[in-house]
Amino acid sequence: MPQPKFLIAGVLIIGAISYLMFSGINSSMVYYHTVTELLDQAEGLKGRGVRLSGHVDVGSIDRNDKENRLRFLVVEQATGKTVPVNYSGIIPDTFKDAAEVVVEGKYDLQKGEFQAHVLLAKCPSKYEREEYEGGYEGKVAAPAT
């Protein structure tokens, strides 16, 4: 059995680490939502970090590099519902029409617009275009979710 002083030190260290992790999680928690969920729960999500996933609505990209601004619609393919996204920052190479995207930020209820500070576009391939068992389409297909 270790001496009490080492036990106490151990408990203190574990406590400090737990505190660090707990406060870290609380301050950077982000909720995953689909477009439908976001629109339905918009009121309750006020001020909360949200990670929204969907696809870029074809033809909706309005990109203005001069003003460092990007607007587009995220569409949920199952329902066809869309949310306008406003983003300024680095635009990944993989971002384009029909790409699968993840945006992180907050939903602005008044403007009805999602203010994103993170934009991820999934490599359209995820390394491979699609699992090869699925067959070769000969074109760039948006990967299935």
């Binding site: 870290g24 301050s27 982000v30 909720y31 995953y32 970090g49």
Partner: peptide, 11 residues
Amino acid sequence: ITVSAPFFNKV
């Protein structure tokens, strides 16, 4: 729910 880069950095 996910935690992003700030969590990792903070810890």
